[in-house]
Design a protein around this nucleic acid. Structure first.
Lengths: 101, 101
DNA sequence: CGTGTAAGGAATTCTGACACG
DNA sequence: CGTGTAAGGAATTCTGACACG
């Protein structure tokens, strides 16, 4: 929705400040496939506000003792639900407007 | 309006990429009072998406040959107009709801 | 006036590894 | 498994200055 939210422009140091998580943790969650920062030309990680929010969720789950593996699944499930919602809405629109092809 | 837009989280290197302006120019426009980045603990500049948009406007004006001095005035005028609009709206609301003191 | 550049230092980020458990 | 830390290098950012004009 918001263009700003998804733009990957925040460096890891600032993400660390925003989330209260150590850089080590942030890098580890990436290694485990929970978040997907972009890389600048010379390889420094760049995060979006969306990523920051995901990290906050992850931090909550971790505090509850949930393992990264399970958190990954939960995040994937959320995404799947959203994808399905999107597809249904698109289907409705297509049916309504009877787009050619 | 958008919380993301005004959060100062972008480092100068990324602002440079986003705007196409050299870091030198970006620092100079700050020196001239056209933009106001925050500073991290150890002094590195942090910009918001709003700042990035201001810089884009400034770049356009500069290409037209407008001096930083005049651009500063124009930006101040814009801000003044917005402030007045805000105050009028607030005045209307206050009159309407007759808030006590 | 506005911008480039070289200069030196300080802070940031990166990766791979060892540690503990 | 998840996270801390020391290690060394590479890239970033900062300031004040000189240059041109």
């Amino acid at each position: 929705m918001s263009a700003y939210k998804d733009k990957k422009v925040i460096t890891i140091g600032i993400v660390s400040e925003l989330t209260g998580l150590s850089e080590r943790k942030i890098r580890y969650y990436e290694e485990r496939g929970l978040i997907f920062p972009d890389r600048s030309k010379r390889g420094t990680r760049k995060y979006s506000f969306y990523d920051v929010e995901q990290l906050l969720k992850i931090a909550d789950k971790r505090e509850e003792g949930v393992q990264t593996n399970e958190i990954k699944q939960e995040l994937l499930n959320e995404q799947t639900k959203k994808d399905i919602r999107d597809r249904m809405i698109r289907g409705q629109l297509n049916a309504h407007f009877k787009l050619p092809k």
